[in-house]
Design a protein around this nucleic acid. Sequence first.
DNA 1: GGCATGTTTGTGAATATTCACTACCTTCAT
DNA 2: ATGAAGGTAGTGAATATTCACAAACATGCC
Lengths: 195, 195
Amino acid sequence: MEIKERQLEIITAAGEILTEHGLAQLTTKRLASKMGFSESALYRHFSSKEEILVTMLQYLASDMDNRLKQSLQHVEAPDLHLKTVLGNQFDFFKRNPHFLVAIFSEGLMEDSEIVKESILQIMHIKKFHLHKIIKKGQADGTFTKELTADELVHIIMGSFRLHLLQWWFSGQSFDVKQKGEKLINNLLTLIKLKK
Amino acid sequence: MEIKERQLEIITAAGEILTEHGLAQLTTKRLASKMGFSESALYRHFSSKEEILVTMLQYLASDMDNRLKQSLQHVEAPDLHLKTVLGNQFDFFKRNPHFLVAIFSEGLMEDSEIVKESILQIMHIKKFHLHKIIKKGQADGTFTKELTADELVHIIMGSFRLHLLQWWFSGQSFDVKQKGEKLINNLLTLIKLKK
DNA sequence: GGCATGTTTGTGAATATTCACTACCTTCAT
DNA sequence: ATGAAGGTAGTGAATATTCACAAACATGCC
């Protein structure tokens, strides 16, 4: 994906609007105003509003994929690994709250099929990486095998999402990383085999 | 809450539009057309579109509260109780999928403060009832005390929501009740004390 | 019984506003 | 002098809401 600098500025601004004011407020007028130029100037960099959204989501997906891949390189015990990966995610959203939209963007999906695909893609990437870790942990006896890896991933992702959702609802009023680490520990308590 | 018959028809129609076509398609035009009368007739029954949404959400909240309260009357073992309550919820959404909107309505919340309050209210009701059951189960030794009741509720609700979300994304293509019961069993496996 | 009055529930047209998008013009650096 | 990046000033379509008005029905009075 080749993405120009001005385009990156625009999709970042779009993400900020989404986070601060919601989907209904993400208009070409508001976006242009935030960028400091006119509406028509937007169309110098993107051919449509849909393309702006899709580019934003694809950028996020590839960025997330990279970060997750990177964290898979270190060979760690699966439980520590899970901590690291989920912790990184919380960290990322803490620093880039405007990308929360990709997690809670059900409204976005109505707009177009391509946008919907992009969002499902992001969910799939995260699922895929978690699955790998869980599988490894089950193989080496760290995690329980009473549930399948898929089932464990579902429970982890569900809790993870709800945590971010509550943070969002609260207006990002608490430390999502810190409370998130507590959540991870709780999940580990439940899924780790007792020795 | 006194709610007239025609109003109930309208909020049901609104819920169906939301589920089938999404928030962006819930317009006065479409709603009136679905009801078989003109747009202006809507305003005979509600003073605004916002009032339609709020009424719909409050109706759902009180309905859900009643069903949950009722299920609390039977004295059951906490694990069976949890099965019953969550199973009932899956059943309800299977029969009334148009009310899924209240669960995944982040987009709705942008519209108005009152709508947002109504949605949070629904989440709170469910949380409250689950909390009661978990607490009881911890007291009588059914559930683990390694986590607090709040923490367990969070994990249960998160998994629950994600399950419904995936059902929604899939276009309600699988049996949400059946797969949901599998999920409940998985959760119970994790949180029940081993004897 | 007949009639006046008021209510309910609808219609169709009109309103102001917002939306994404575009045709056309300007500026300016290479 | 060309092309990228911007501005001006519009477009048509869609939006929620309001308006004056009417058909159907109920109520109570004579």
